[in-house]
Design a binder for these strands. Structure first.
Lengths: 234, 234
DNA sequence: ATCTTGTGTCAACGGTGTTGACGTAACCTC
DNA sequence: GAGGTTACGTCAACACCGTTGACACAAGAT
């Protein structure tokens, strides 16, 4: 259901574009990846993609039904990339942390795609393998089937949710980012103690709010899982 | 730094538009809210906003520097709305859960804005009060200043991250959503046992992946916090 | 009553995703 | 090799988008 329907899977008639490039779905995904990496997520448009390919923008629609379809294909490639090199160490908690961070980082690498890769089910091999691996870790930890699925869902969505969030921060201009940090440092740190007692008390630590919270969040989640598996009753 | 600079805070010359409406920053935010609620996040464009207001779209730029500026103002309103009615019960864990869910729900209610409201520091009263309340709960639980900030950050970003994620799902057409559910049910549930052993084992529970994972995630986080405060050494 | 000026309107610019018509070159058959 | 089909790259166009500068006019100040 993913990209087919317009793509007969195997191409025969492969005509080079006016600039000599022979298009293919893979090549288009390549170009989209490079474009986003080099110019940022904002730079991704079908027209620019066409220019990068040395082809008319509308040629893309011979391979993908629309941009969402293309981003979906890109998403599955990312999932695959993020999992290459992943090996189970036997310590399921450590592996799960690695697993989550890999998902986070790959989603963060291409902010534009982060949403798609998580919201839609690509149903492709890379995704399927990743899910199988992740759920395998939780089964290995000792959770029953229902709990493994539930916890996997919580963990992955948390990692990807943070990615979606932090991706937004990357889109800010340097000036905006500095302004936000200053807001935590000055605007918040100087609030009156009587109206904002808690903020006043923790004022020294507020600049820490400017960074990402993935690792603390993942650590808390995994700590809870470790505890749940040790004391199933609690 | 928020919306001013173009807005002199107090308007004197208030001329009605051609359709008789008297514009104001508040009214524009109102209209933007309604527009997104009624038609979905996709429907939000400056032009449509103008139409909804009964004014020329460009009139919006008399009140906000650009769309981001407008969405920022909307963000702070949402934070305020989400916290109205929140009262501390004395059970910090339950309160924190409520706090997180309120953040999640208000962000989810307006998906388009979810990213902005979390990525940027609005530095406005509503935001400041919410942060004070949340950190207060963690201090009350017994965490020291640094831990309270760290845990608050993890909790809020997790709630909002899930909102950002689930918001994407809302943008799908009903047909797409059905397709995704079917993918979990059929595409995944029928995979071969030898290549996907773990997926095969949990196949009955996979449809649960279609929903949101906020609550499981928040529950895990809070369980970890509860444990951390009981056994500070662990 | 006159002047200033805030502000709503209009037209325009340069961008976007997407589509339908069209021709040509690449395969298949003979 | 010749001819026919047709896949696919190209082109032009459509309907949108955010944003801006010029302009007219009415509201408030004098």
């Amino acid at each position: 259901m993913a990209e087919s329907e317009r793509v007969p899977a195997e191409r025969k008639r492969r005509r080079p574009t006016s600039s000599g490039v022979v298009l293919s779905a893979d090549l288009i995904v390549d170009a989209a990846c490079e474009l986003i990496d080099a110019q940022g997520a904002q730079a991704f448009t079908v027209r620019r993609l066409g220019a990068a390919l040395g082809a008319d923008p509308s040629a893309v629609y011979r391979y993908f039904r629309n941009t969402e379809d293309l981003l979906l294909a890109l998403a599955d490639r990312l999932i695959g990339e993020s999992m290459t090199g992943f090996t189970s160490t036997g310590d399921w908690a450590a592996d799960l942390r690695d697993f989550g961070l890999r998902a986070y980082r790959s989603a963060l690498r291409h902010p534009q795609i982060a949403v798609f890769s998580t919201v839609r089910v690509t149903g492709r091999p890379h995704e399927q393998h990743a899910v199988d691996t992740g759920i395998g870790l939780l089964l290995q930890a000792g959770f029953d089937e229902a709990a493994a699925v539930r916890h996997y869902h919580a963990l992955v969505d948390t990692a990807l949710g943070h990615a979606a969030l932090d991706a937004g921060a990357l889109r800010l201009t340097p000036a905006q980012r500095v302004a936000d940090e200053q807001a935590w440092r000055n605007g918040y740190a100087g609030l009156p103690a009587d109206e904002f007692p808690s903020l006043h008390r923790v004022r020294e630590h507020l600049p820490a709010m400017a960074g990402s919270a993935v690792e603390p969040a993942l650590d808390l989640l995994i700590a809870a899982l470790r505890r749940a598996v040790e004391q199933p009753g609690a």
